[in-house]
Nucleic acid binder design. Structure first.
Lengths: 244, 244
DNA sequence: ATCTTAAATGAATGACGTTCATTCGATATG
DNA sequence: CATATCGAATGAACGTCATTCATTTAAGAT
């Protein structure tokens, strides 16, 4: 029914043959450049194609669809950011480690707001979330977060009455909320302050104490016990530490 | 150039004239029903129109565009949820209040997952965020959160070394993270447990104590003071409560 | 009965992503 | 050098939708 033959075979330009790698890389680079300029939503496939020096259809030889291309762009882009990170291992102290985990993500966001917007707002609601760079980031960072918390619980530094997953959600969630506000241009985005605040609240909120309460009570408790012992050496009227 | 005249004037159905309110309400109801069935992404304007018993173009008399219609649907839907909430005022104790704030949002999400997905994933990245029901929710809940925190700081129950805005971000962010996982069908969604965990960490993380440490020390401190007073009625060796 | 006005219509349009029959060019083969 | 082969590249056509707008219709006013 439809004749789809391009009869006018004006030979435009002699399509220079390249290896697949080169073409694919060209397209990825072009896509990244266009996204950086216009944001995901306004980025047309034809923009990318033009910039890559190919024709629309060619993109579909290398990528399944637009989203697939976009996800791959984000993966590369985000991967570069991870390389700049310092190592968690070199940092001592639970609270400092928590602070670093928050700081790292916040730094990436501050350094690459376009990438952050791209991943957070445009790529995140992927039906196939597990293929998303956002998921990858979460997976990676979550692993370390859980490690830090688990160690703290095992050493008795942290109480174990709140799931480490919850702490992870608090840390990442808080960062995300601040990021949204940042991307919207609301308020400031003080990386150090935010990282410090999150780490401080979580650390204090989880810090275990000998008497089962929270805080640095060692001194108080010792003094109370000493005084109590003096008052009542037999221990008859002592508060019921252990009965029977 | 183009003749846009529908020459065949088959008078289908005598378009019954309704008041604007009714039509608008019909369309809103139809939209909500279709969204509930198919989700935002798969909802076509023509679906809504058909269900509302109008024709596509009619929708544009009552709503600016598809997104505008969607946002209004979400506003109504979400507004209903707020009505079911119990009052924060009736709840005593800072930690209980925090728990309630978390619990309230989590309950809505659990009760109306389609609404949650709709607001969180599909409507949230609105260029005009401030018109979004998500923004409205945040504004409303944030107000109360800040109120609770401010009171706690003023009464000396909370330390003031972390911005209340950060606590808000932690609370809402944590909820959001759990919601994403819930909507993705990962893990369980125990409203009480999550609300309790968040409130507990934040409360402990912020609780101010007389000695500058953290924890529920009132009892201990009182006992220590009583005992100390007995030992040294003159107060000579009492810990430096007030000197000079 | 006729005029006026706003609601309703639905075919046309435009914007995009995606497809696919066809063409092109490099390499292998005789 | 001529020819066959095969994958890469092409770009016009297509399908899906949101959106527009010239035209029609119904209800109230005169």
């Amino acid at each position: 029914m439809t004749a789809r033959s391009p009869k006018s075979a004006a030979k435009k330009k002699a399509a220079t043959r390249l290896s697949s790698d080169d073409r694919s890389a060209d397209i990825l680079a072009a896509a990244r450049a266009v996204i950086a300029e216009k944001g995901y939503e306004k980025t047309l496939l034809s923009d990318i194609a033009r910039r890559a020096g190919v024709v629309d259809g060619t993109i579909y030889r290398y990528f399944e669809n637009k989203r697939d291309l976009m996800v791959k762009v984000a993966q590369i882009w985000f991967g570069e950011q991870l390389l700049m990170d310092s190592h968690l291992e070199s940092i001592a102290g639970t609270q400092n480690r928590l602070r670093h985990l928050a700081w790292r993500t916040l730094s990436i966001i501050q350094r690459e707001p376009v990438l952050a917007r791209f991943m957070l707002m445009e790529l995140r609601p992927d039906p196939n979330y597990r293929n998303t760079p956002f998921f990858e980031m979460n997976r990676r960072f979550t692993h370390e977060m859980l490690q830090v918390c688990r160690e703290a619980v095992e050493s008795g530094e942290f109480l174990s009455d709140v799931s480490p997953n919850m702490l992870r959600d608090m840390l990442h969630g808080c960062i995300e909320h601040r990021t949204w506000a940042f991307l919207r241009g609301e308020g400031d985005f003080d990386v150090d302050e935010v990282a410090d605040g999150i780490a401080r609240v979580i650390y204090r909120g989880m810090a275990a104490r000998p008497d089962g309460t929270v805080g640095s009570l060692d001194g108080l408790v010792r003094r109370l016990e000493a005084v109590t012992a003096k008052l009542d050496p037999a221990g008859a009227n002592a508060h019921p530490k252990r009965r029977g």
